[in-house]
Structure formats: C-alpha cells, structure tokens
Design a binder for these strands. Structure first.
Length: 581
RNA sequence: GCGUUCGUAGCUCAGCUGGAUAGAGCGACGGACUUCGAAUCCGUAGGUCGCAGGUUCGACUCCUGCCGGACGCACCA
C-alpha cells in the first residue's frame, strides 16, 4: 500500500494534467498535512501558485482541479476554502483499510526508493591520540542517524570515518614515544595518549632540539621507515580502541570497517595533484600548487585557493579531501556524497565541491551535500565547557548521562532488577543525549541542559520512550487476559482515535522529509506529535476497559501500530526503546 | 573589509522550502487519579516573528539595507 501523501500527490498531478495539459505535469501539487484538523486531513495548495502562472483566479483553478480529481473512495469530502485551498478529508472506510494495510507492513508504509544511490556519509572524524570530546558529538550522532535513514530508504550507504591519522603532529608524538620508551605494547589507555599529545606538543614548542628531531621523524614516517610506522600503527590501534568503545557505548553504528583516515588517501595524493595539473585546473601560486575556484574572495579581495601542494612540497588536508572526493566518485561510484562537518568549514566545502566540478569529477549525476551543524552551548550561552573551562570529554558526557538516567530509574522504578535498571538507564541516557542533538535544527547552535533533555515532558527522548512503555504495558495486560488486537477494524469515531490514526499515515512522509533535507529534527518533530496524540488518546479512550470487545481489539491494534511507529522512528535515529522504565 | 550563518512567548525550541487565526515544552495560574503507568492529560494567561523598506492575492519564510551574536577568509585540520 503506497502512502497517502504520495497517493494524493499523484492524484492531484493527474488532475492538473487533465485540466491544463501535460506541460503542467511536473507542477508540485503542494500537498501538505492540514494546518488545522478542522479543515480536513490533507490539503493541496497548488491552486494559488498555478493560478498565478495561468493568469486565472485561484478559486477557478481550484474548482477545475477538484472537477478533474479522481480520488475514488479515498476521500469523504473535498472542499475549496479561502483563496483556493483544497481540503481533503479521508473517508473513514479508507482510513480503516489503510491502517489494516499498515499492520502487516514492517516498514509502516515507507517505500523502498526506486532510485537507490551509492552514498558516502562522512562523519565523526576523531583525531588519533586525542580523546573524543563534545566537538565530535554532533557529527557522530547526526551522521549516524542520517546513515541509518538513508540505508532504510534503500540506499547503499558507505560510512566514511575520516580519521585524523596523518600530519606533522605525528612527528612529535612518535619522537616523544621513542624518548619515553613507549612502544604501544604495554596497553596504556587513551588517557595516557592524551597526555602524550600534550607533552609532545609542549616539548615541540619549548625544545628546539626535540622539534628538529620531530621534523625528521615526520620525514621518516612519510618515507615508510619501519620502526616509525610501527609506533604510528600502535598509536592508531590504541586510539581506535578508545573510539570504538565510545561508539559502542553510544550505540553508534561505526566499526573498524568504516575507518578511512587521512593516511588511506596517501597513495592517491600524487595522482590527484597530477590530474589537476594535467587538466589545467591547478596552477602555481606563491610557490604552492593551487586551485582557484571562481567567485571566492578573501581578505584583500584576493581569490581563495584550495592548496593542492604546499610550497615545501608536502600535501595538506585540502588535497586529501580532493583525493577522497575523487576516489569516492570515480572508484567507489558514489552518486551522492554527504559530509557531516561543522558549519565553520562551509567555505572549505564550497571550495572543494567547486574544485571537484572544475576537475570534472563532480558532475550533475552526483549530488554532493555539505551537512553543516551548529555548536553545543552551555546554559550560559557560550561554548559548552567544564566549569574550569576545559573541553568536555565524550566519555565524561556519557558517564554523566548514564548516571543521571540511573538516578531517575532508581527513583521511579525502585523495584526493577539491577540488570534491568542498567539497561533502561542506558536507553534513557543515551537516548536523551542523542535526541537533544537530533531534535534541534542542526544548523543552529543549541543550549545543552541535562534537566530538559531528561525530562518526561516536552520534545525529549524519555517522553517518546515513555509513550512506547505505556503501550507495552497495555499489551502485557492484554496478553495476560488473552486479548488480541484486530488490525482490520480500528475504530476512528472518537476524535482522539481518528487523529492518531491519521497521524500514523504520515509516517512515510516524515521519513521522506529527512531523506530530502538531511534534517533529522523533522522526524523528531513528527514522533513527538505522534507520541503526544497517543497520550491524548490514552487519556480519553480506554483500551482494555473499552465498552465493547470490537472497540477494545481495534484500539489495541491502534496502540500496536503507534508503538511500532515510535520504535521504528527512534531506531532510525539510533535510539533504543524499552518495555518498562 | 568581504563572506557565511543565526535572531520567533520570561526561558528552551518547532513552524513541512510562499499559504488559512504563528505552535509546543518549561515556568505562572486553574483543573483531572476507586479504571490500561498522574513518568500523563485538559484549560487560561503570555509574541509588533531583531528593526526598516521591498516583491505578491498572501511573507516568520524570498530580496535590499541596517542592528546584534557566532563563524570563516593561503600552505594548521
């Protein structure tokens, strides 16, 4: 069963074609959920814009469209209102049948895409020998949710964790390891490596002799000196252990298979630069090899370059990114590229995409999307830091989320077993941490607040999880009583029943919106609305104590579908549900 | 200086790519538990959508200019 949104769009498109000819077949019928349930369930706003294009009064266009509209038994009424809104109210019989169809569908009406992309999603990107911190959380969580959603939509998703595992800083790190006799074999944790980073940096700045040796060590690393490479590998292995641990605790779907660090592209740097030169895209400037995409002006009105090769002959991140985009399009055959990277790098990606177009790698057949996001702010409105002004480690953030969630579970469900408490606290804590990040429009900064994100009121993970828990609770009781849901006869007479039923049919559109916009908060807003409608339904429509068996089994089925929608929606965001909390 | 981005209720945020009377949560005030989890629900009060113009049947949404915040503008990523 195709979803209602698509069904209506198709029907209106046909009506447009029939009324005004095939040249208008591509007109977006502007089908939306009704602004107010009093108007109906869905509305089409195309009459106004089409009226302008045709030079006809919108009311007349609306009338023509309605005349040519064939909705069969879908709608009980189609009305024209105001300047030319076309309001559609679904027929109850159709609504009930649509829900029955939903019940047997594990995808809840979400169609598999007919145009699957191979899409590389670039996200998380921590740096070797540095613990992950709040600066990594948004990329990691948003990128993971988008990966899950694109995968669910039917695309082939290639997760690309662009690990910072190359560069001059490794000279200092490795030289310092040599000095201290560390070879990575003694199992020191990443905390030690964090110290290692700080100490080696300090020595590099303070000790000229050390700095010189560090520079030589960089050369050794680049030329493949075995001992240097061994130490370098040990650093990376230790760092990955830390990152994987964080991903596992967060429930992020990144694994060893997804690391494609900067070093992965080393062998491609030379060919990439060579191709850019051969194509005349890259030119010499101030001793460096640069690409100057047109239209980018710097401080003095000078053009802004992408530096392919530094004046010292080395390669920097600009060329690594060029090599990566080339590789993803030419070698991996990606038709869509998604970069989940903070908004300060907007210009860098504008330059990168422009350069990739100049080189002929990025064509109209490939969609390259930069997915920027804002910062996490403390309650003082400034960058989120510890009280002493330190960067907040991800591991500490996770610890605190779990602790606070555990406190809530202890207070509200004291009779639960300890194992269950751990599991529930994890679902709530990690859910809250992720949901707060996903539910805010990603382009904006957001203010971090433990109390708000862990609250059971408002647009939070616990609120959604609790709606699911209430549903599970009903089913436990129903099972005990031997009651079965009847998905073929969901009652829609009560306003709360009907509102919930209609909202369930909007699930596919909510998912589609995220696939289009790469804005996970749109799904969050939908799920919050759904949970809210369920809670209202729950208050006004008794399920197990319904007046008659038919209503009871029908409402039970409605609860079941709402529960599945919540669980599926949350899972697409990377958030778990639990049966009790 | 140039560029990007944000500014919606006291606070935290939505507003579906130009549509109907701008919505939610918190906080305030007032209600609802002998019934499926009150971890919830229902209601009231609260907004010149930063400011000023413009485009149009219609602007929180698009354009221009200001104000305010954040960020970015060549060899660090």
């Amino acid at each position: 069963m195709s979803d209602v949104q698509t069904l209506l769009e198709t029907a209106f498109q046909s009506a447009i074609t029939r009324a005004y000819g095939p040249e208008y077949a591509d007109t977006d019928p502007l089908v939306r959920s009704s602004a107010d349930a009093a108007f109906g369930d869905w509305q089409a706003n195309v009459a106004m814009s089409l009226g302008k294009k045709l030079g006809k009064p919108p009311r007349a266009v609306a009338e023509a469209l309605v005349k040519h509209l064939d909705l069969g038994t879908v709608a009980s009424s189609v009305d024209i209102a105001g300047p030319g809104f076309i309001n559609v109210k679904l027929a109850d019989a159709f609504l009930v049948a649509a829900l029955a169809g939903l019940d047997g569908d594990p995808r809840l009406g979400v169609a598999q895409t007919s145009h699957p992309d191979t899409v590389a999603v670039d996200y998380s990107a921590p740096n070797v020998a540095k613990e992950m911190h709040v600066g990594h959380i948004r990329s990691t969580i948003i990128g993971d949710a988008l990966s899950r959603m694109l995968e669910f939509a039917g695309h082939r998703v290639l997760r690309r964790n662009h690990l910072g595992d190359w560069g001059t800083q490794f000279g200092q790190l490795i030289e310092h390891m040599v000095d201290r006799g560390l070879d990575g074999s003694d199992g020191h944790g990443i905390g030690d490596l964090n110290d290692l980073y700080r100490q080696s940096k300090a020595r590099f700045d303070a000790e000229p002799d050390f700095a010189e040796r560090a520079r030589r060590r960089v050369v050794a690393l680049q030329s493949g000196d075995p001992e240097t490479r061994r130490l370098w590998s040990a650093l990376i292995a230790e760092s990955k252990r830390h990152f994987n641990e964080i991903y596992k605790r967060l429930g992020v779907s990144l694994s060893d298979a997804d690391y494609f660090g900067e070093s992965f592209y080393n062998d491609m740097l030379e060919p990439t630069a060579g191709e850019l030169v051969a194509k005349g895209v890259a030119v010499q400037s101030e001793g460096a090899l640069c690409v100057f995409p047109p239209g980018f002006k710097g401080r003095d009105g000078a053009p802004v370059p992408l530096i392919v090769k530094k004046s010292d002959g080395g390669y920097g991140y600009d060329n690594t990114d060029l090599a990566a985009i080339r590789h993803r399009i030419l070698d991996l055959g990606c038709s869509r590229l998604v970069y989940v990277v903070g908004s300060p790098q907007k210009q860098h990606f504008d330059l990168l995409f422009a350069a990739a177009r100049m080189a002929g790698w990025l064509t109209d057949a490939v969609r390259a999307e930069y997915v920027p996001f804002g910062s996490v702010l403390g309650e003082d409105g400034k960058m989120f830091k510890t009280r002493s002004g330190e960067v907040i480690k991800l591991t500490d953030l996770i610890d605190e989320a779990l602790k606070r969630a555990r406190d809530i579970v202890d207070a509200k469900a004291p009779d639960m077993t300890d194992d269950d408490k751990v599991a529930v606290a994890r679902a709530i804590g990690m859910g809250a941490l992720k949901y707060v990040d996903l539910s805010n429009d990603r382009i904006k900064d957001y203010v971090f607040s433990w109390d708000r994100m862990l609250a059971f009121e408002g647009n939070t993970a616990p609120y959604l999880q609790n709606a699911y828990v209430r549903i599970r609770s009903i089913f436990r009781k129903a099972d005990e009583a031997g009651l079965r849901p009847n998905p073929d006869a969901v009652p829609v007479a009560e306003p709360a029943e009907r509102a919930l039923a209609v909202e369930l049919l909007r699930f596919p559109d909510a998912v589609a919106q995220v696939e289009r916009s790469l804005e996970p908060h749109r799904l969050c807003t939908y799920l919050y609305g759904l949970a809210s409608l369920f809670h209202s339904f729950y208050e006004s429509c008794p399920v197990l104590a319904a007046k008659d068996p038919a209503t009871r089994s029908g409402r039970l089925a409605l609860c079941g579908m709402a529960g599945r929608a919540l669980a599926l929606g949350l899972s697409l965001l990377g958030i778990d549900t639990v049966d009790r909390m």
